[in-house]
Amino acid sequence: MSAYAFPGLANYWIAIVLMMIGLYVVMAHENLIKKIVGLNIFQVSVFVLYISMGKVKGGPAPILADNITIYSNPLPHVLILTAIVVGVATTALGLALIVRVNEQYGSIEDDDIRDLENAE
């Protein structure tokens, strides 16, 4: 067994399970706020997947210091920093749309809104 047997691929697997829970919430639920929360769950699990790939065993955070030769990979960190901020921007826009939809239809349930649309 190599030194990297634990957690091996388990980190990626759990991240994928989290991702699928998020996808399930987005697909299964009619409530628009719940859909946004599902999207957030999906998003954070993608971040976990990336950060897991950048971890190097025995390496500290990539802040340069003397006497340290091995560091964790800084590139996924940079990508995910950008993604987090963009993620909150899209969340804010989605929530604003939900508030508008609620003003227009008096409901934030997808199927209710569809019925109201068809009735008009």
Binding site: V44, F47, G54, G59, P60, S72, H77, L81, I84, V88
Partner: peptide
């Protein structure tokens, strides 16, 4: 835990 301290900071504040 995964050494991404900058990301952790941003996630705690923003996420």
């Amino acid at each position: 835990v995964l050494d991404a301290v900058d990301v952790a900071f941003t996630e705690a504040a923003v996420g």
